[in-house]
């Protein structure tokens, strides 16, 4: 069983990497302006197009997709609940509220300051969610994300009311809808931090797996449970905050990708994490491409495409008979 899973994991990892590479090439090729591959090295205009617009965009999509998927995986491992993700735990909405507060309180705040404040909110929001979940005796799997969705709704309503007062409704809508159309060189680099967060998660994978077994087991193997929990949530919140501030929220990614991946390669974090990262990157690359091609040369924000495809896939997964979701 283990060796079979191991082999499946290796194969899946290879396939995922190949798919990401292919999609990345496609992403480099597609855009409003025509790109002549042969002239890239000779024509400075064409080279500029690639380095200023195409490469940053492709990198941004890969980083954001990978980071959001990994954030979801971490949260599911820590809460031992397959339905928990930045979308269903209030993390994204809390981060959005943080961005609004940053804009209102510190008018000319730098991107890093915004990320910092959004991070504080995302972390606090998720921690509040976990506290509430702990008080929820009735631990039915689905009650947990339902609580998260409602909590997210409260954050969003607060954001809306403040935004309404400050005449920022339109602006907030833009943040909350992930969109890569504004990505050019110099306006996406913060996303590398999200990538770094995903890498950090990989380094602490063993600890996170142990913490995911619950307080008793974690303590009995000598792990500081609270600290590990906080570190894992910190990484997930950080990745979410960075993505929301830089390109806006991308729904569902943290829910679907880890669930499909763990279905294939099992729950061991160290094994599932790289595949999840690649899977998230591939999904967002594909959705971003679709968004760019459907009404070319205009664009549909990637969040809408992910929303339609992601929700569709998830719905099919859940409604399929005899699957592990249906047993919840």
């Amino acid at each position: 069983m283990t060796s079979l899973r191991g082999r499946t994991a290796a194969v899946t990892l290879g396939v995922a990497a190949a798919v990401v590479a292919l999609l990345a090439v496609a992403s480099l090729a597609v855009g409003a302006a025509t790109l002549d591959w042969g002239a890239v090295l000779t024509d400075p205009e064409q080279l500029r197009l690639v380095t200023v617009s195409r490469i940053p965009r492709t990198a941004a999509v890969i980083l954001a997709g990978a980071a959001m998927a990994v954030a979801g995986l971490i949260m599911q491992a820590l809460t031992r609940n397959r339905y928990v993700a930045p979308t269903t735990a209030g993390t994204i909405d809390a981060a959005g509220l943080g961005v609004l507060v940053a804009v209102l309180l510190f008018a000319g705040a730098s991107v890093m300051a915004k990320i910092g404040i959004a991070l504080v909110f995302a972390f606090a929001g998720t921690a509040l969610f976990l506290l509430l979940v702990e008080r929820l005796r009735l631990r039915e799997m689905i009650m947990v994300p339902l609580l998260g969705l409602v909590l997210g709704g409260i954050f969003r309503a607060t954001t809306e009311m403040i935004a309404y007062r400050a005449n920022l409704t339109q602006t907030v809508q833009v943040w909350m809808n992930g969109d890569f159309s504004g990505v050019i060189e110099g306006r996406y680099e913060t996303l590398w931090l999200a990538g770094a967060a995903a890498a950090a998660a990989y380094l602490m994978a063993h600890h996170l797996t142990a913490a995911g077994m619950g307080r008793e087991i974690a303590t009995s193997v000598g792990l500081p449970y609270r600290a590990t929990l906080a570190a894992g949530l910190g990484v997930a919140s950080f990745a979410t905050a960075v993505v929301v501030v830089t390109v806006g929220a991308i729904p569902f990614l943290g829910l679907i990708v880890p669930n499909v991946v763990t279905l294939l390669v099992g729950d061991n974090l160290r094994r599932a994490l790289p595949v999840t990262a690649l899977g998230g990157a591939a999904l967002v690359l594909a959705c971003d491409l679709i968004g760019r091609l459907v009404i070319h040369p205009y664009e549909i924000p990637v969040s809408s495409v992910v929303g339609v495809l992601g929700a569709g896939v998830l719905l099919a997964l859940i409604l399929r008979k005899g699957n592990r979701f249906a047993r919840a």
């Binding site: 689905i142 339902l146 569902f252 549909i300 929303g307 339609v308 569709g312 249906a326 047993r327």
Partner: peptide
């Protein structure tokens, strides 16, 4: 025959699917 909780989750996701499709159509 599906459990209540699966039903809830499916409903919530269906809601997101519908509003995403609406959002998609708003753009096009």
């Amino acid at each position: 025959t599906r459990g209540l909780y699966t039903t809830v989750l499916a409903g919530v996701i269906a809601g997101t699917l519908f509003s995403s499709i609406s959002g998609f159509l708003f753009r096009v």
